[in-house]
């Protein structure tokens, strides 16, 4: 005895429901706008001077702490003064102008090193000693000629692709 809903009718309704749920426009009124909102929630550090960082941007995002620690020991113990991963150079190139036209110090949330760290709840003590902005009387200079060999070697090693 046929009930109020035929089997075929139920099936059709289910399919219609599923389609409605899967339809992007139905759940999110405007996909472009939602992506925008998501982007605003992640930090967006200001670009450094020049076109590129001292190594691949992706590599720097993930491994800047490793290269800095490495450089630190090389410099302090062995007197190696290459510029590529020098903290002093990061600070010079990544200086962010404040309202007073001077680069901001680590006190400001706009400081390059704070943009992501504040978001990710990372706390570093480097700037208890290290200057967090270039010296005022000296204009920050772009370092020149970073060799790429060392970076790709280190990158390979860190990503576990070395032999």
């Amino acid at each position: 005895m046929p009930g109020p809903f035929s089997r075929a009718g139920v099936l059709a309704a289910l399919i219609a429901l599923l389609l409605a749920c899967a339809w992007p426009g139905a759940a999110h009124a405007d996909p472009a706008q939602s992506a925008q909102t998501a982007r605003a929630l992640v930090p967006s550090p200001q670009k450094g001077k020049g076109d590129a960082c001292v190594a691949d941007t992706d590599f720097m995002r993930r491994y800047h702490m490793t290269v800095l620690n490495h450089q630190r020991d090389d410099t302090v113990h062995n007197g190696i003064r290459t510029k590529q991963f020098s903290l002093k150079e990061c600070i010079a190139c990544h200086a962010v102008q404040g309202e007073d036209a001077r680069p901001v110090s680590i006190e400001s949330p706009k400081h390059f090193c704070r943009t992501c760290h504040d978001y990710a709840a990372v706390k570093i003590d480097c700037f208890e000693c290290h200057a967090s902005r270039p010296e005022s009387n000296k204009a920050a200079q772009l370092p020149t000629g970073h060799g790429d060999g060392a970076v790709s070697a280190l990158s390979r090693y860190l990503k576990g692709k070395g032999q």
Binding site: I91, A92, C129
Partner: peptide, 14 residues
Amino acid sequence: PLSDQKPHAPRGKG
């Protein structure tokens, strides 16, 4: 605590 140290001469409390 110190601030605005010389970039080539980091120094800090402790």
